[in-house]
């Protein structure tokens, strides 16, 4: 066993709120660095694990803005459990492209899709209490909880995510230089 393996590993949780999972795919784009990462961290709740609730963690990576009630609950649970909370990608940072619905009336949106669309067998806006209600606007996550760091991009490149994570894990203040900083 190397020296590295004996060090207590940091716990990392990740989630996608009103995201497209593109930021998680970009995270996987760090390719073989994943093996390196697996020696440095342990994963808590994440779409990549089976853990259902976020436990105490060092780092929480949040993809996606906040568009419904469940997003709010998950985001608050992450904030309560993660020492460092990171907004990953354009959606988490400013609502992203989903926030383009903010200039439309929510009810009109739902009726357009679930009632007025042609070829629907049983038109009607879903109303089961199991389903989380949409918020009238899509919000960046920093409007709901305090956020420690932001990694811009739609999505941020694997290189950008790796630079950020390796800085953070090593105890350096993460800094994204010009070539890693993209909003698109």
């Amino acid at each position: 066993m190397s020296q590295l393996d004996k060090k207590p590993r940091l716990r990392v949780a990740t989630t996608s709120l009103a995201g497209c999972f593109g930021c998680h795919m970009s995270f996987l784009d760090i390719d073989e660095h994943l093996f390196e990462l697996a020696r440095l961290v342990e994963f808590d709740r994440s779409p990549l694990t089976d853990i259902k609730e976020c436990g105490p963690c060092d780092i929480g990576l949040i993809e996606g803005g906040v568009c419904n009630a469940e997003n709010v609950h998950v985001l608050r649970a992450f904030r309560a459990n993660c020492k460092t909370l990171v907004a990953v990608g354009a959606c988490a940072i400013n609502g992203g492209l989903p926030a383009q619905r903010n200039h439309l009336e929510l009810e009109a949106c739902l009726r357009e899709v679930y009632e007025h669309r042609e070829g629907m067998d049983a038109p009607g806006v879903p109303n089961d209490p199991e389903l989380p209600l949409l918020l009238d606007k899509v919000h960046p996550i920093h409007e709901i909880v305090r956020v420690d760091y932001f990694i811009p991009g739609c999505p941020p490149s694997g290189e950008t995510i790796w630079k950020f994570l390796s800085d953070l894990i090593a105890g350096r203040t993460p800094r994204l230089s010009h070539e890693l900083l993209r909003f698109d």
């Binding site: 609502g95 926030a99 960046p140 698109d184």
Partner: peptide, 19 residues
């Protein structure tokens, strides 16, 4: 505008959005 934000290493808009 975007290029200035890169130049000055702006990673988020920090304030609440007006939409």
């Amino acid at each position: 505008l975007q290029a200035q934000a890169y130049e000055l290493e702006m990673t988020s808009a920090r304030f609440d959005h007006f939409f």
